[in-house]
């Protein structure tokens, strides 16, 4: 019959067409090769630069009195003595220590610890927090003690120490300004 030949041809073409389509369709690379999300952590010189940059710009009216000194694991003992091991075992990366002067001239000791990971910073914050420490309203992960203000933001752990009442009052503002720069 006249139908037989075109039918034969049609049927004959189906398998190669099908197979060709399947092979072409699948030849694309596997979809599951994406790199997992997350930003690579800044390290080394890059991270030091970021650490130093925290002291530039607006500090809630305070100014940097002494040049910011950076301490690594070895130098940390020189800076904070016997308190060093608890930082080192939490993978501490760098300490930035300096003296600040508030707007009215009082001194504030400032130590910023780059703990490499937020979890490490949280860990040291929890470890050093005293049982009677009072949390600060509107400032999570911060405690205000007599003459001191300690907080954690991002991967940083910050200890601010004042030496008189006026400076003590300025600490929260200073802390807020620092925290604002910490990403």
């Amino acid at each position: 019959m006249a139908v037989r030949t075109p039918l034969f041809v049609l049927l004959a073409l189906i398998p190669p067409a099908f197979i060709g389509w399947m092979v072409r369709d699948g030849h694309r690379a596997m979809v599951a090769t994406a790199v997992p999300a997350g930003k690579p952590r800044p390290s080394g010189a890059e991270a030091d630069k970021i650490l130093l940059a925290l002291f530039q710009g607006d500090l809630g009216g305070a100014t940097v009195k002494e040049k910011v000194t950076l301490y690594d694991e070895k130098g940390l003992f020189d800076s904070i003595d016997g308190a060093a091991p608890i930082f080192i075992e939490r993978h501490f990366r760098r300490q930035a220590a300096t003296e600040l002067a508030t707007a009215d001239g009082s001194d504030v000791d400032c130590a910023v610890y780059d703990m490499a990971e937020p979890a490490n910073a949280q860990s040291i914050f929890d470890a050093e927090k005293s049982a009677t420490a009072k949390p600060v309203t509107d400032f999570p992960d911060a405690i205000a003690g007599p003459m001191s203000f300690v907080f954690r933001a991002s991967r940083y752990y910050v200890k601010l120490t004042a030496f008189d009442k006026k400076a003590e009052a300025a600490l929260p503002g200073l802390a807020k300004a620092l925290k604002g720069k910490m990403k």
């Binding site: 190669p16 399947m22 092979v23 699948g26 030849h27 694309r28 690379a29 596997m30 979809v31």
Partner: peptide, 26 residues
């Protein structure tokens, strides 16, 4: 021919079902 082709294609894709070769083949 269909039998041979489809059997072959079936076996071919079964052979391709391995981590190194599978790509996105259905």
């Amino acid at each position: 021919s269909y039998q041979v082709v489809f059997l072959g294609f079936f076996l071919f894709f079964v052979l391709l079902t391995t981590a190194g070769l599978i790509r996105g083949y259905d």
